[in-house]
Design a protein around this nucleic acid. Structure first.
Lengths: 196, 196
DNA sequence: TCCTTTGCTTTACATCGTGTCAAGTTGACA
DNA sequence: TGTCAACTTGACACGATGTAAAGCAAAGGA
């Protein structure tokens, strides 16, 4: 494939970092490991990325490209009815999480100490949140929103329910399969958010 | 008060550590800080606790004592009907989280690298899980469990919904008050788990 | 062809936090 | 008086991030 033939060093590092993080679920991957696996010196990495945080950010953005985040979002926007929107969103996001989990986890970890990473993380979470908001507003517009919640409360609830941490807990600790996660999340959010 | 008058050095360190962690939400508290605030040398801390992880574990257990975890659990066991059990559990746990949040967060962080801490954490989470299981079984016994879930699925769902991470997100990011958290969790879990 | 720039390498070092080690101090108790 | 336990002091190892400086090698323009 063309796309894997021509690489700048920078791209090579990003791709390698993403792969290592994915393989190891984001734990125990050092800058030196990434450098070695990329076939460059550790310092070369710092020539391209001022800090670990910046590299994590680049890796996560790279995966957005690879997995066609933009495409997926378009598909989601084409959904019509509230329930369609809800289900499409759960499917899209639920399938997206495992693809980026390792890198996301590393970004989560580094955000404790790295302000830039914290901002990048918040930014990503906001975009998920706006997907939730769009969904809830569609439902509300069709008068299908449960009277137990205001729009804001429903958004908070949906956003929290679909958090990566919850996915992690349900698939790892509770051993739900990916299929089960998605179908049970549909049931959960349906019961929680929809009228009746 | 007697209880604050007589301290072994060990107790002093644990108490100081818990306070510091609580104040700072578990972030940026070093062993040296704990030592200084306890009025002992950094090495004295290592005389009592072989590692940071062990100290975190001691701190969390200490808070269990202070806040009378055993008492609370007893109250919860006295609840009768399924709905009572559910609501009592949400109230108990929902009020407990903020009291231990800082220390719990520190324990969560250290568990990534410290096996003993990881075990202690898993142990605590298992005890919450068994509270959830008891609740669900009571509900099931009264035939009030939603037909959408098996007992196991309902336990997973309840346990995940009540996670500290979710509490953190809802109270910090979504700015729910403690009151709101508890009452909305009752609504959420009621809708999710109960029949009809 | 020479020269410059660009991108990388190598080596060394600073920093920060955890955890270890060894020798010294102090006070209680026997 | 002597001994033991608890604590102090100061030094150090380690692992990871990040910085600094000097050198090298190839591409590209004059």
């Amino acid at each position: 494939m063309m796309s894997s033939t021509f690489f700048t060093t920078r791209e090579k590092i990003i791709e390698t970092a993403a792969n290592l993080l994915l393989e190891s679920n984001g734990k125990g991957v050092r800058m030196a490991d990434i450098a070695r696996a990329s076939g460059v010196s550790r310092q070369a990495v710092y020539l391209h990325f001022p800090s670990r945080g910046e590299l994590m950010i680049a890796a996560v953005r790279h995966l957005d490209d690879v997995y066609g985040l933009a495409e997926e979002v378009k598909r989601f926007r084409e959904a019509q009815t509230g329930i369609e929107v809800l289900e499409t969103f759960i499917e899209f996001w639920g399938n997206y999480i495992p693809k980026v989990y390792g890198v996301a986890k590393a970004l989560m970890a580094v955000r404790e100490t790295d302000e830039a990473a914290a901002i990048a993380w918040r930014d990503r979470m906001e975009s998920v949140r706006s997907g939730c908001r769009r969904t809830i507003e569609t439902i509300e517009h069709e008068c299908l929103l449960s009277p137990d919640w205001t729009v804001d409360e429903a958004v908070d609830l949906m956003w929290t329910t679909l958090s990566i941490e919850n996915w992690e807990r349900l698939t790892n600790d509770c051993r739900w399969t990916q299929q089960e996660y998605i179908s049970r999340m549909k049931t959960t959010l349906g019961k929680l958010l929809l009228k009746r």
